[in-house]
Design a protein around this nucleic acid. Structure first.
Lengths: 160, 160
DNA sequence: CAGCATCACTTGAAAGCTCAAGTAAACCTC
DNA sequence: GAGGTTTACTTGAGCTTTCAAGTGATGCTG
């Protein structure tokens, strides 16, 4: 019904750069990880487990922490389990629940991969920006994300 | 050899928001397009063709304009061709070259889809930010992209 | 406590992307 | 101008992700 609100020149310019970031940054990060035999989602999964008490989290929570669907995690968990980096056991208290645990080998893998991942993050983003720009970028991205996806991140529960 | 330069608290905070953007923004944009039966790459392909003289571009240039590999475009072009939105013909001047053309139906489809796409872009990004923030975000993303992928965008050739 | 709904997860098929290989045309280069 | 290289594109297999459906376990309700 209403007229389309097209982008003006400045907006279009900004939009192209935003699209560029959204297209190329993931690719760049994946490249570094792939060389170590992991994709970003698998890495996030291992990282989330490593931060948890007993390196153990239930599948559905883990899916949230790694920012993926339960189905996606289920497939990924199978791959990670096959390579010996995680284990899955049904919870004794609720037999619907599956608990995923990081194995020793999984932790070792994470420790091996993490430095090169962080380094690629630095090279891609932080080394080109001033600390001030990092703050601005983080803040603005935060606003957009809050708008798109309120209630993210899942691990940030407000305190009473 | 050298020590890993881990992220400090502020950097980590910014990084989480950047990752959030890079994860959720594409998903959100794809959602809107998928409802119209297109993905972002297919949309970019049609849009690039619509801007070209005679709505015709050779495959390899089109791949650059749509920010994808030639293989990816080849697969996508087959789908778009099957739906009658583009046509492919070998160039008369160089029979290795394939020229892709937007059909009338393809143009109609683009005109149909564009408003809802632009609207989703506005809703996701521009409506939450001040014009000043849009400028900043665009500029900073531009710096990161230049760093990751110098020589982008492909359509911006410098003049003599 | 029987029956039904809900929850937690897994599975398999379909779709799209990447990578490596294949095809054909055009360009050297001697 | 024959032989080999490069260019332009297509194709098919393999992988990951999504979506819909399936499997048990648990919770609710009369």
């Amino acid at each position: 019904m209403s007229e389309t609100r097209w982008l003006n020149a400045k907006e279009l310019d900004a939009w192209r750069n935003i699209v560029g970031l959204v297209l190329f940054l993931p690719t760049r990060l994946e490249e570094a990880l792939q060389r170590n035999g992991l994709n970003f989602f698998e890495y996030s999964t291992l990282a989330a487990l490593s931060d948890a008490p007993d390196q153990t989290i239930q599948m559905s929570s883990l899916a949230d922490l790694a920012n993926g669907s339960l189905s996606r995690l289920s497939h990924a968990a199978k791959r990670l389990e096959n390579r010996g980096w995680i284990e899955r056991h049904t919870s004794p208290s609720d037999r619907r629940v599956t608990l995923a645990t990081l194995t020793k080998e999984g932790m070792a893998k994470l420790v091996e991969v993490a430095p090169s991942h962080v380094e690629s993050v630095r090279q891609a983003v932080f080394d080109t920006l001033t600390p001030q720009q990092v703050l601005e970028l983080g803040a603005i991205c935060g606003m957009v994300v809050q708008n798109i996806n309120p209630g993210w991140p899942p691990w940030e529960q407000k305190e009473t």
